[in-house]
């Protein structure tokens, strides 16, 4: 798969840009967190496209962002379940 560039992304409509980024991010995230990949990808798509492009080029920054997202997701899920069980 050829690397995604800013000009390739800019050629697509805004809504489709997130779709394209998501399709690139998902398999990378799935390799690390198969059960949370969809949710984590959804979270990361909140980030600016330019930053997402940089993350796709830099596995280290992508990995740290994924771990950050997992931590946020776990806290969120814990607070949701404590609300429900209260």
């Amino acid at each position: 798969q050829e690397p995604l560039t800013a000009s390739m992304l800019a050629a697509a409509p805004p809504q489709e840009q997130k779709q394209i980024l998501g399709e690139r991010l998902y398999p990378l995230i799935h390799a690390m967190h198969p059960f949370l990949a969809g949710k984590i990808t959804g979270m990361l798509l909140e980030i600016d496209n330019s930053e997402l492009l940089l993350m796709l080029e830099s596995p280290e920054s992508l990995h740290s962002k994924i771990e950050e997202a997992v931590a946020v997701l776990q806290v969120h899920q814990m607070s949701e379940s404590s609300h429900k069980s209260a």
Binding site: Q15, A37, G38, T41, G42, L45, E46, E80
Partner: peptide
């Protein structure tokens, strides 16, 4: 007033149109 945070974050599904954040400004 109910909270809508239960479904956060929206889940990305490969091959399906992404409409998690419809209010993105170009």
């Amino acid at each position: 007033s109910g909270s809508s945070s239960v479904n956060w974050p929206p889940e990305f599904r490969p091959g399906e149109p992404w409409k998690g954040y419809p209010n993105i400004d170009p």
